[in-house]
Each structure stands twice: as structure tokens, then as C-alpha cells.
């Protein structure tokens, strides 16, 4: 996955100053919104229960934790890479629209979880 977004592809000297300064604040903005939403959605969710059950039943919960942490890194990397790859392939409007639809689909999925709880 080619990390870094469109702005940072140019040498840093050519990048307009406001984009340079935007970068750190933007990182934290994106990081926190991603972290909060995914963390809240994951609490009590399937993945957490799987890890919980396996660690409870095995004598080595930390070994289970290592295995699941590696898996979570892998799936997040795959997910973000697919998203990044798609963002290069799709026209911006279709990309934004499809992302919004997927996010609304996740919202509906969460709501159905809440109802079935």
C-alpha cells in the first residue's frame, strides 16, 4: 500500500504551507473519529467475544491475545488498503457516495444489533 495521500506525493517544499500544517491536525482528527467509532462498535461484538472465549478456555490468554492482535492488524491493513485502492480507482463522486452508503449500511447493522440485544 503506497502510504501517504495525494498532497504528500509531491516533495515537501512544493506542498503549500497550509497543507503541511494541516497534516498533523488532520491525522488526529481522522485517527480519533476512526478509533472512537470502531471501538464503540466493537465493544461486546463478535471479535471481542471470540478473543474472550478463546483466552478464557486456553491456559495462555496472552498467547491468544497476541494471535488476535496480529489478526486485527492484518484485517485493518487489508481493509484500509482495499479502501485506498478503491479511492484511486473510483471517481471522487462515486467514491464519496459509495462510502456514505457503506457507512449508512454499518449504521443500520448497528441499529439491528441494538434491537436484537
Amino acid at each position: 500500500m503506497k502510504t501517504g495521500d495525494r498532497e504528500s506525493l509531491k516533495p515537501i517544499s512544493q506542498v503549500p504551507v497550509n497543507v503541511q500544517t494541516k497534516q498533523p491536525r488532520n491525522f488526529w482528527l481522522v485517527f480519533t473519529s476512526t478509533f472512537i467509532t470502531i471501538f464503540l462498535a466493537e465493544m461486546g461484538d463478535k471479535t471481542q467475544l471470540v478473543t474472550l472465549l478463546m483466552s478464557a478456555e486456553s491456559q495462555a490468554p496472552w498467547i491468544v491475545f497476541i494471535g488476535s492482535a496480529l489478526a486485527l492488524i492484518a484485517t485493518s491493513l487489508i481493509g484500509v488498503s482495499i479502501g485506498y485502492w478503491l479511492s484511486k480507482k473510483l471517481a471522487p463522486e462515486t467514491l464519496d457516495l459509495s462510502v456514505a452508503i457503506v457507512l449508512l449500511f454499518i449504521t443500520a447493522w448497528l441499529i439491528s444489533d441494538i434491537i436484537n440485544l
Binding site: 502510504t3 472512537i36 467509532t37 486485527l72 484485517t75 491493513l77 479502501g83 464519496d96 454499518i106
Partner: peptide
């Protein structure tokens, strides 16, 4: 799972995929 879909969606929409990757991984 939902979080995988979220990683795909957010990874595509935000101009900072690294932040999405780290945010998602730390949360999970």
C-alpha cells in the same frame, strides 16, 4: 465484520489512510 467494512469505507474516503489504519488497529 462491521469494523472491516468501516476500515474499507474510511480508508477510501479519508485523505489520511495511515490515520485510519492506526485508529482502527488500536481500537480493535
Amino acid at each position: 465484520d462491521k469494523s472491516q467494512l468501516a476500515a474499507i469505507a474510511l480508508g477510501g474516503s479519508s485523505n489520511n489512510p495511515r490515520a485510519v489504519f492506526i485508529g482502527s488497529t488500536v481500537a480493535l
